[in-house]
Design a protein around this nucleic acid. Structure first.
Lengths: 232, 232
DNA sequence: CAACCACTCTTTGTATACAGAGGCACTTCG
DNA sequence: CGAAGTGCCTCTGTATACAAAGAGTGGTTG
């Protein structure tokens, strides 16, 4: 019930291609490798400290993830994020999350969600505690997502959802959320949680629909007003 | 507006890894490589006539597609299809197609759909013409899917949809549809088409929901009754 | 002065050689 | 006779060497 050796501190027995994949993926997600950045094979292979063969395997996986695109003759580059692509991603996200939440509300074991509910009830206080509080709030969201994935129990659906979340992580970076939105989002999550616990798929689906609508509006607004700042 | 050299008869200037990917993918989809079949690198590389390096790249893509899984220490094997996984795939399919159809109904240029409608009106006669007719009917469905993809205009959503269709192709192989179902399906497609042309996203979504429900029931029934035959 | 052609350099695509890990069978001991 | 340990062998994982293709640049010619 554990993935690789993730539970332990052991990262030594990891394949080189796996290390390269995780490192590059992380660097793309946290913005170290910015959209449009060129990836030269030899350059990246030397930087990571491996040869070109496992690096190519890592890049191939990144292409499959949609984080990297191959340029015709001139290597690869990190995919960029347009405002259009954000709206498009949310169209996919909505379809997947509404379905996932609906199924979770039907199939869930209520216990983990009841536990999570406690956390979201206390979210407003958490969000008053500065960056650490916000960080712990995001931790709650991760737990909620994991609980939903377990409740859904559908590898295809969960896999598609994880792919969407990968892209969302990049978007969050360029749209710092404001405190008001975080409080509102916490309330929305609480409603979703209640619907899941109550076993009400219809309510859960509608609440998710609303939540994602608000989320997208917030992200687009944040990018719009901060575009000059983000442009750096 | 053409992909690679697909339009021409030229397959010479294709990369070895690309050739290997297409060949293996095709062989998995058409059943030549059955679920559970082991893929040995040297063996497959020799068979296709390339070295191990591009073959590994091809296998990596197949793993990303979910058509192949890596066994801990002993190579790779073709993923198998359980009845459970079919229902799970349909849960994902429903979420994606309902969303896609809804958006298509909103954004469509009516012209190509009106053209397709002619084809589906004549579908019943087509289905009386034996295998060639059935084959042409499937061609119509492909055209419909392409038209929807264009109308949706969302790379994320369309990409997810294409991934689902890949797995569906394998499922169709082990569930020969009966003529009655094909006639009913054609009628359902006609309703969806009318809703798209009318620009009625709600009707289109509901019609798609029903269509997929019936489709899944038909597939599960076909597998149930034919299990002894399929087992061969 | 501009346009076209050729050459070179960079970078990817492919093959092969080598090393390490895991499994299976055989043998040996209890 | 059964079980456990050891050794071999196969297969993957990685590195490196080589080939080919594309792009950019410079020169030459009209």
């Amino acid at each position: 019930m554990y993935t690789e050796t993730a539970m332990l501190g052991l990262d030594v027995p990891l394949r080189a291609s796996e290390r390269a994949y995780r490192q590059l993926r992380g660097e793309i997600l946290n913005g170290f490798l910015a959209p449009g950045a060129a990836l030269l094979e030899v350059e990246q292979a030397e930087r990571i400290g491996i040869s070109r063969t496992p690096l190519r395997e890592a890049v191939a996986r990144l292409i499959a993830d949609g984080l990297v695109v191959g340029r015709r003759g001139r290597g690869f580059e990190v995919t960029d994020i347009s405002v259009d692509s954000i709206s498009e991603l949310y169209e996919l996200r909505q379809a997947l999350e509404v379905q996932a939440i609906r199924l979770a509300a039907i199939r869930r074991d209520p216990t983990p969600f009841a536990l999570l509910r406690e956390g979201f009830v206390n979210a407003p206080q958490l969000l008053e505690q500065g960056d650490v509080g916000v960080h712990r709030y995001y931790g709650l969201i991760d737990e909620l997502e994991d609980a939903i994935d377990v409740a859904v129990g559908n590898p295809f659906l969960v896999g598609a959802l994880r792919a969407v979340r990968t892209h969302l992580a990049r978007i969050r970076r360029l749209a710092r959320r404001n405190p008001l939105r975080l409080h509102a989002a916490a309330a929305e999550h609480l409603l979703i949680l209640d619907a899941i616990i109550a076993g009400d798929p219809s309510l859960a689906a509608h609440a998710t629909h609303i939540h994602l609508h608000q989320s997208l509006q917030s992200v687009l607004a944040a990018i719009d007003e901060g575009s000059a700042t983000v442009a750096n």
